[in-house]
Structures are given as C-alpha cells and as structure tokens.
Simulated assay, not measured.
Amino acid sequence: MTKLNYHKQNFFKNTYCIFKSVDFQIVKNKKPNFVSKSGSQYFYTDEGVYRISTHWGRAATCKWRLQTDAETFKNGKKLGFAKWSSFYKDNEVEKLYFIKKSAFSNKYEYFHKNEASYTIEYVLRTSGDTRKVLRQLKTITTETKWAKYIPHDDLEDLRTYLINGLITTNKTLPELKRMY
C-alpha cells in the first residue's frame, strides 16, 4: 500500500497525526496562512505545518494529538508542529490503530499502523474498537473495584495480564477475565 502524500491542500481531510509542542516564538510576527472557523491558526512551511489551537484530539474529521512535556499555554492556546510525512489517513472502517503505552506520556494511547513503532505483536483495530479498549484500559489502570470479582493474589499481575491481553490479542475483556 502506498502512503498518501500530505500537504497544505489535503492534510486536514480525514487524517491522524501527532504534533510536537514548540515555542510560540517560532511563529511570532508571522501571519497565519489559514484560520479555521473555530479560531485555530495554521502556518505552512515546506517541511510541515504549525498549528495554534485551544483544542486537540478530535478536530473536525481528524485525530490530531499534541505531544507536550510542559503546560505551555498562551491565552489558553498551544502551538504544535507536524511534518507533512507525519500525517496518515484516517477512517472509521479500516483497522488502522493499535494501542501501546506511550513512552512520552506513560499512558496507554492509540497510534497509527504506519508509524515506525508498530510491530505485529499489537492488534490492529478500527477507531471505534480502539476507543472501547482504551476506556477498558483506563478502568483497569485507575480503579480496583472490578478486580474483586476475579480470584487473584496479586492485583498488579492481574492488571498486567489483562492489559497485555487487550493490546496483543482479539480476546474480549470478559474472556480474559475468565481465562485468568
């Protein structure tokens, strides 16, 4: 399968991308090439696009995440940069996404199958199925009441088993719980 080439004319149509947080000084005194109806500002370069926005995650028909190690805001807005080569196609029907623990945030997040970190150990899912598993992972990692119904001696061992099962197999959470 050939990768689509994204650029300023098509990057905003059904794409997935992880933007990297950058300093506002980069676009200081520059006029945006485009301002969306919601107020997001876009600055195009030959390498990629800078985006200033108050909202990240789902943006219109896109899934754009901002990777930031600091809470750098300017009037509630954050600035991110993404290379054109960092954009990937997105839709609701293809199995495009896998889940793994992000080395950056230390949380379970979804990633596109065309990213370099993808290996065959991870199960590919549709967007909807990925969202469902991410909700389950959040419950497993942040709550404990679900565990009282599963015989176990070590909660962390149980969590590890369920998490690995959810991200590397097509087994459902109830199946994994019964198998433990």
Results as ranks from 00 to 15, higher is better:
T168E: 14
L166R: 12
I26S: 06
H7Q: 08
L134Q: 01
P151N: 10
K89R: 09
D154Q: 11
S85G: 12
P32Y: 02
N75T: 15
K31L: 14
N5L: 15
D46M: 07
T139Q: 14
I163K: 12
H7S: 07
Q136G: 08
L134I: 03
V27Y: 03
N170G: 08
E71K: 13
N14K: 08
K63M: 13
P151F: 05
N170A: 03
N164S: 03
K138R: 04
H152G: 00
V35T: 15
N170L: 08
F111I: 02
Y6V: 00
G80S: 03
K78C: 12
T168P: 07
T2P: 01
Y88Q: 02
S38G: 10
W84A: 02
D153I: 02
E143P: 00
Y110P: 01
T142P: 06
K95S: 02
Y161L: 14
G57R: 11
H112K: 08
L162A: 10
Y108C: 05
V123Y: 01
K132A: 00
K37W: 07
A82P: 13
L66Q: 15
A60L: 15
Q41L: 12
H112M: 01
L166M: 12
F19D: 10
N10R: 00
T142I: 06
S86A: 13
I18Q: 15
L79R: 04
L162S: 10
I150A: 04
C17K: 03
R58F: 05
K101A: 12
F81M: 03
E156H: 14
S85H: 00
T68C: 03
F24R: 02
Y180K: 12
E47I: 10
E175P: 01
I26D: 04
C62S: 15
Y6M: 00
K148Y: 14
F19A: 09
R178L: 08
S85W: 09
K95F: 15
N164I: 05
T61A: 00
T72G: 06
K77H: 11
F24E: 11
W56P: 11
T119G: 02
T130Q: 06
I163L: 11
Y110F: 10
K100F: 00
N5D: 06
H112W: 06
Q67E: 12
W146P: 05
F34V: 08
K145M: 09
P32F: 00
V123I: 09
L96S: 07
F11N: 09
K13R: 10
D90R: 07
R58N: 14
K30L: 13
G76S: 12
W56K: 02
Y122H: 07
V49C: 10
I26H: 11
S102E: 04
T168F: 13
W56L: 03
F81W: 09
F12Q: 00
S127I: 01
I99L: 14
V133H: 04
Y97P: 00
N170E: 05
H55K: 15
A60S: 15
N5H: 07
E143Y: 07
T160Q: 13
L134G: 03
Q9R: 08
V93P: 01
L96A: 03
Y50D: 01
N10K: 07
Q136N: 08
